[in-house]
Design a protein around this nucleic acid. Sequence first.
DNA 1: GACCTGCTGCGGATTG
Length: 729
Amino acid sequence: MPEEAPAPNAFDLLAPGVQRRLWDMKWTELRPIQADAIRAVLGSRDDLVLMAETAGGKTEAAFLPLLSQIADEALGSVRVVYVGPLKALINDQFSRIEDLCKHLEVPVHRWHGDVGEAARRTLIQQPGGVLLITPESIESLLVNRTANLSGVFGGLRAVVIDELHAFLDASRGLHLASVLARLSRRVSGDRPRMIGLSATIGDTDAARRYLSPDAPERVRVITDPGETKELQMRLHVYRPAGSPDAEDDARQLSLHTVAADLVEHCHGRSNLVFCNAKGDIELLADEGNTIARASGLVPSFVVHHGSLSREIRDDTESRMKSERPYTAICSSTLEMGIDIGSVHTVGQVGPPWGVASLKQRLGRSGRRDDEPRRLRMYVIEDADPHAEDPVHRLPLRTLQSVAVVELMLRERWLEPPALPEMDLSTLSQQVVALIAERGGVTPAAAYEQLCVRGPFRAVETAVFADLLRSLGAEDVIEQAPRGELILGLEGEHIRTGRGFYAVFDTPVEYRLVHDSRELGTLPSGAVPAEDDHLIFAGRRWKVVSVDADRQTIYVQPARGRKRPLFLGSPGHVHRRIRERMLEVLIDPPPLPYATGPARELIAASTSAAEQSGYSGRRLTPMSDSVTDLVTWTGTREQLTILSMLSAAGLEVTDKEVSIRCRASVENVRSVLETITDYPPPIETIARAAIQRATLHKYDYLLSEELRGRAIAANDLTLDSALELLRHIS
DNA sequence: GACCTGCTGCGGATTG
């Protein structure tokens, strides 16, 4: 029997200049994922997914072999494109990769909105090496630098997508796939190799299909098993003891208690505390620092979220990197990417939205080899055992927190990512962009580029033709006499508008200014009045004046305090989480990480739910004319069922884990029987869903029929909704 | 009551 050749030593495969750099940096060994990636890149043409914890060496795993491969390539074209979702991440990675290139003749470029004209000129005039860029900046190159594309990208060998999971379930992922497909037309020679980097992906097949839709089975997934780290965790539950009338006061009181506990738990160390709402971030930081001062401690809470100015976020980031102990109270801005040093404990205030998000956040602690991961969850439970409405008696926040933790720890399950395959808003933007790139394009060529070679494969030719008609009706495009599509008046307007390059929508915002220094922004729908107080950027302010023309709010320091208002819209919860919440409710598992009060609360809820008819999926009468359809299912199923019932003529209200119907039990039961026997056409359900579904950036250009098609494909899930209804007793 | 992300090009005048 022939002996299998031993795997080559990965280090020996690297280019001499790369080896020398590793000697300089005193690396004694390569991590397994790096050795595997080096062998895969230098020994095959396969596309790759590299999965490892944040700071697990993924960047080096991809770039050590890629740099080795291009070390001897002449200038004349960029060889490797690195796509990052954040400018801050690109800046971080730029210095890391430049550092790896110290002994190589490989230039490293970056291009995003904050990169200066000189650096841009260098890339255009002397392209070569590595380019770090955002999806939106690729779009701007395609549209504005068309004449340079072949020169800059003609010899491209590989595309690296960092934080791949961030692109796998949103419009931005489709946008990125589309600009890469448009770019690959400009590459001569072989299709560039695709490499995705990510910490955690619930479904690696989705990642494979994304990187290589034509041959997903040939994408190799390399996972760093990592050592299974010890997790120390605690679930704290807070119960407002206020009167039902004073709900806000009660919540405020609970936040005070959470803040007091945070001071105790966080004092003297560096920590990250994630909140679900930006208003809570500001309030908790203010409260925590006030309590710390009163106890003679150094106030060390700082804030970080997306409405703060870059300057204030930079300040928080550099404090976190410093030797002094700070605790950042933050939103998902600190969930991914930029390195903020070692963190002792991760806090989570309120139930996590999902397992993937909690896992990502948890990865921020226990970075050092000898350190365990530490997680503290703080849940303000506003369920009231005496409430008239049975839904308000259920401890939904506590149940959701427990369900997410149980799914993560015991089932090792994550939400699978799902791209909105019928994203007609993003497709509309791509039609405009493609016309802008080529000057004009025939409908057939547009379909070929966007829906055959590009990511909109679920869009059939008839739907695409409808879309073009819809865009024509809105003056976005028009057809030249020879059949070519060109931009119409509205299309030119969209294309030259400032917001054109991104496919996600941004609400109108007012700037908050003190002493000509910008602190951040507030939504135009929640602008405070003159003399109002607010907490912002961790400090207290009073509004001096509001300039509506300049959309600016001028403030000065003050003593009064008020939670700022940010207008968000509810997110999605996966069906498995709500199902698990029901299981925890009817048969609580041992919860060693929960404090005594948390366990007692759940135990007490079991019998209460039984009595109120919420301990299973069933029809529960509230009165002769009101019936609750208890669903315990995900937001997508919930939307589908709501729309079906409403299309059948019932008056319905979303109650999160149930649907309240203004009708008798018999009436609702007969509607359910009809629906399950003769399900209404999806178009009918989609029409009923239009009012409740999220509106995307370019949806306003679509006919109602197209909008319905998009909702049917992206927002509804008929099969699992019907399956659930068939089991309603 | 619910998070985040991004972003012209060009020509002409002026200055060192």
